[in-house]
Computed example of a mutant assay.
Amino acid sequence: MVTVTLVATRPPLAVFSRGYFRLLAEVFGDAMDVVTVLHEGTPVAAVMNFHFREEVLPYYGGGTLAARRLAANDVMYWEVMRRAGSERGARLFDFGRSKQGTGAFEFKQHWGFAPQPLHYAYQLGAGASLPEHNPANPKYRLMIAAWRRMPLPLAKLLGPPIVRGLG
């Protein structure tokens, strides 16, 4: 039998530096929280959430390989919604953007969320074209495949400088 325990804990680690997460916690204070799912005392999934008015936005999240088998992400998002609603009075859950045809998009539809198109306006310089910084862009396919096979210590070392260049 699998036991999943929910606790509030420090922000999850990702390709971003610990200092970045510390700064977010400092700046957002009580408007931010972290939900972590533990399995037998070990974190398997976590998400950092931001709260504004009656809305919660789970923003930085991730899980281990075991998270999928344990349905930890389902438990995690359920707990985010439960806490946001019962403890903070939230009425809106913003699951964020996802490209159609991706696993993230399908996961959100599984929860019953209906997609809503987002409209953007761009101001480009003369001769410039819209950047296509997204995982569906074929020019990133090799880089994404290499990243997925990269040893974790190397990914942690290279992640922060790469992420800074994407914004």
Rank of each mutant, 00 (worst) to 15 (best):
V35H: 03
H133P: 02
P153S: 07
P115F: 07
V4I: 07
A114M: 04
H110C: 03
Q123I: 14
N49K: 00
E132T: 13
R53G: 01
R141M: 00
L70H: 08
V15R: 04
M32V: 09
G112C: 08
L23P: 00
G62T: 02
L65D: 11
F21G: 01
T9Q: 12
G63I: 06
W147A: 15
L92H: 07
L13V: 06
L118S: 15
N134A: 03
R91T: 12
G85F: 01
P131Y: 07
R53M: 04
F95M: 13
A67T: 04
Y60K: 05
A8S: 11
R18G: 14
A121T: 10
G112M: 05
S98Q: 13
T3G: 13
L154K: 05
R69C: 02
E26W: 15
T9C: 12
G125V: 07
F113I: 08
P58W: 09
T3P: 01
R22T: 05
Q116M: 00
G159F: 03
P161L: 10
V80M: 03
R53A: 10
A14Y: 13
P160L: 09
R68L: 11
K108N: 03
Q100R: 02
F28L: 13
P153N: 08
Q116K: 08
Y140F: 15
N73S: 11
P131C: 09
E87G: 04
L152A: 06
V47I: 13
A72M: 09
R149Q: 11
E55A: 10
V75Y: 05
Y122E: 06
K139E: 14
P43A: 12
R149G: 13
E54F: 01
I162T: 12
A31I: 00
A31C: 11
Q116S: 08
H133G: 07
G41V: 05
D33M: 07
E79V: 04
F52T: 04
Q100T: 05
P131A: 12
V163A: 13
R69K: 08
A14C: 08
G165F: 00
P11M: 02
A14E: 13
A72P: 01
E132D: 15
F105H: 12
A121K: 06
F95Y: 01
A66M: 12
E55R: 15
V35D: 03
A72D: 07
P138S: 04
L13I: 03
R68V: 06
A146E: 01
T9W: 09
R149I: 01
V35Q: 05
G127Y: 07
R68P: 03
A8F: 11
R69A: 06
L38S: 08
R149T: 00
A14N: 14
M1F: 07
T5E: 07
G167H: 15
L6C: 12
E54K: 08
T3N: 03
Q123T: 13
L6E: 09
A66S: 13
D33N: 11
F16M: 06
L38T: 02
Y140N: 05
V27Q: 11
G167Q: 14
A128S: 07
H110T: 07
A67Q: 06
R68C: 01
T3W: 03
Q109I: 07
R83M: 05
Y60G: 12
